[in-house]
Simulated scan of single mutants.
Amino acid sequence: MSDVSEVQNYRLRDEIKAYWSERAATFDLSPGHEIFSEEERAAWHRLFTQHLGEGDGRKALDLASGTGVISHLMDDLGFKVTGLDWSEPMLALARAKATARARAISFRMGDAENTMEPDDHYDVVVNRHLVWTLVDPAGAFAEWLRVLKPGGILLIIDGDFVATTLRERILSRLAGWGQQLGWLKRDTASLPQEMMDIHRSILSRVYFRDGARADAVSDLLAGSGFEGITIDTRLGDIHRTQARNWNMLKGMVRKSQHRYAIRAVKPARAV
């Protein structure tokens, strides 16, 4: 890699870190980030149990853990959870939430693409809405493979928020107009124009700038050494519970998006 590329990547990653640090204060106000009902919590639990099984004290690493939403869901199921994030404001909120709920979750500063965690240490690595932001996904996937125990499971929950369908675009535009005219419920934590511009700028420069399709992510996982890769797009239970917190059109947009869970396994060592 050239020196110029390294500088560009460093600057982009700093921008991503700063963006999410700025978003921390209002992060939990948005449906799809924090859990807003016991029905949604139960739907998440079913997804994790389906792909990971019960926790039973197994070690789980939640990458880009943010305010700790996924970490708490994993803790509910009996996993021994470590949350890793590089945003200090996000970590402060996550630690405060864990203290308030009396949860024994460890939240610490760390880079999801270079975790500095030990080899063969975790039974499970999980992340939500991280992959689309990766500068070097192949390198990150190799890193996640390294920290997993042989036979350990990676679970990615993400989506393609770029290559939208015509239906999505029409619904999004109608929802926007309806909110502007006061006909539809506004989003609880709408972003100011400046933050939307920063988001678009970041998105235009990450690896998945054209959209993080599940098959493209799976191909990179296979190339990094994972096996037993499966794609689950049946997230309807989660999306239905989240849609209740939006106006009707915004809820329809969420249900029509290309969102998925990808499960992958680190090969067991040969006997």
Rank of each mutant, 00 (worst) to 15 (best):
Y207R: 08
L191R: 15
V126Q: 10
S106C: 07
D219W: 00
A216T: 11
R101K: 11
G151M: 07
D123T: 06
F141D: 07
A212G: 04
D210A: 14
V125N: 00
R209K: 15
E113M: 08
R169N: 14
G139A: 11
F161T: 10
T188F: 10
T188Q: 11
S201W: 13
E143W: 00
L221H: 01
D160H: 13
A214F: 03
A100G: 06
G151D: 07
G182M: 04
G152M: 02
F141H: 07
E168I: 03
L130C: 12
G151N: 09
D136P: 12
M195D: 06
V162Y: 13
H129C: 06
R173V: 03
R186N: 10
R103D: 02
I198K: 13
F107N: 00
T188R: 15
G159P: 12
R128F: 06
M116I: 05
S218L: 01
A140R: 02
A212W: 00
P118A: 02
A140H: 06
L130R: 01
F161I: 07
G178A: 06
D197M: 08
S106I: 08
A104F: 06
A112L: 11
R146I: 12
V147Y: 00
H129N: 13
P118Y: 00
P118Q: 00
V135G: 09
L221N: 02
Q180N: 05
V125R: 00
R101W: 05
K185F: 04
L181F: 13
R103Y: 06
F208N: 06
T99Q: 12
N127K: 03
S201C: 03
G152F: 00
S218C: 14
P137T: 12
R128N: 09
R146K: 11
R128W: 07
S218Y: 00
K149V: 10
V162G: 12
T115N: 05
H199Y: 15
D123E: 14
W132H: 15
I170Y: 10
R146P: 11
R167C: 06
I156D: 13
I198T: 14
H199N: 10
D136I: 08
L221T: 02
P137K: 07
R169W: 01
H199R: 15
T165A: 14
E168A: 15
A112K: 04
G151H: 09
D136E: 14
L203T: 09
Q193Y: 05
L134Q: 09
Y122D: 02
P192V: 07
D197P: 13
T133S: 09
I153V: 13
L145G: 05
M109S: 09
V125L: 08
A100E: 10
M109R: 07
G182V: 07
S204N: 12
D215H: 08
G110L: 08
D136S: 10
G110C: 11
K185A: 06
W177I: 15
A214E: 15
R209S: 14
E113L: 03
R186W: 01
D111R: 03
L166D: 15
S201I: 05
W183D: 00
D119G: 05
W183S: 00
